[in-house]
């Protein structure tokens, strides 16, 4: 189990606040467990492959029987699918939304399981807190909404961005410039950063509070009553743990929702 430990050199008898020794640990790629040709297999890669296995297994076993009166598990899986298809795809994109539902469902389940690793005991590492993963998902979204725009409006899609018809003539160059950067550059970037930063922040908070709390409590013999602060930190960590579960669901939802909104705006630029 890899945690950002409160630094090893930190002496709880003297320092009341121990900074993590090297916060960059979170952003570094560990060395590979083994290599498959040119592809090194790290712990992150294992977890990503794990997502694929978990999602496929849940969908396969949930929808295997297709009973008319669904069992408990089938009901859960079906309600997730219905939530993404009706609640996100059709509600946001409109009548053509069902076409995009499989892609949105894949994104939703992938991000959800990847985030849930954060609160899974003995894993405690959200793979979506590696910038590469949200960025790749955001690039896929970018490609899909640009292609959707080109298919719908031809090259007028780009013209509509840099020369918006709904804006007064004098403002068009300025608004066009802003729109160009915001749609083609900032959209995928903020989409990725939102997921990444939320998960990094959550992971940092959890590890700092829980691990530091545990370090203080377990060193009660050395520092006496001052170890009491560990109890407060550990309790706060457990509260944050509950909060993080909500954040995890919300971030998966928001990533999917924004992907749908971006496709909708390139299909119907007037709304």
């Amino acid at each position: 189990m890899e945690l950002i430990l409160a630094s090893a050199e930190c002496d709880p008898a003297h320092d009341i606040i121990c900074a993590p020794s090297d916060v960059n640990e979170l952003f570094e790629f560990r060395e590979a467990i083994f290599s498959l040709g040119p592809f090194p297999i790290t712990r992150t890669v294992f977890l990503i492959l794990g997502i694929a296995v978990i999602v496929s297994a849940v969908l396969f076993f949930g929808l295997r029987k297709k009973a008319l009166v669904p069992g408990k598990f089938q009901t859960i899986v079906e309600s997730i699918i219905e939530f993404v298809r009706d609640g996100i795809a059709i509600e946001i994109i409109g009548e053509h939304g069902a076409k995009y539902a499989p892609w949105l469902l894949s994104i939703f389940l992938f991000v959800l399981v990847g985030n849930l690793y954060e609160v899974t005991p003995f894993i405690n590492f959200p793979v979506t807190s590696r910038m590469a993963l949200p960025l790749m998902l955001a690039v896929i979204t970018w490609v899909i909404f640009v292609i959707a725009g080109i298919k719908r409006q031809g090259l007028g899609y780009f013209l509509g961005i840099v020369w918006p018809k709904s804006v007064p003539m004098a403002l068009r160059p300025l608004v066009g410039l802003i729109e160009f950067f915001s749609i083609l550059l900032l959209r995928p970037l903020t989409l990725a950063i939102r997921l990444f930063a939320n998960l990094v922040a959550g992971h940092l908070m959890l590890t700092l509070l829980l691990v530091s709390g545990w370090v203080f409590i377990s060193s009660v013999g050395d520092i006496g009553a001052r170890a009491g602060i560990g109890v407060a930190w550990f309790t706060m960590g457990l509260g944050i743990y509950m909060f993080e579960i909500v954040v995890i669901m919300l971030q998966a939802y928001i990533f999917t929702l924004l992907s749908a909104v971006y496709v909708q705006t390139s299909l119907y630029p007037d709304h």
């Binding site: 903020t190 950063i193 939102r194 990444f196 930063a197 939320n198 990094v200 922040a201």
Partner: peptide
Amino acid sequence: TEALALIGFV
């Protein structure tokens, strides 16, 4: 709205 705060965090 949140994106701005998160960019600051990054």
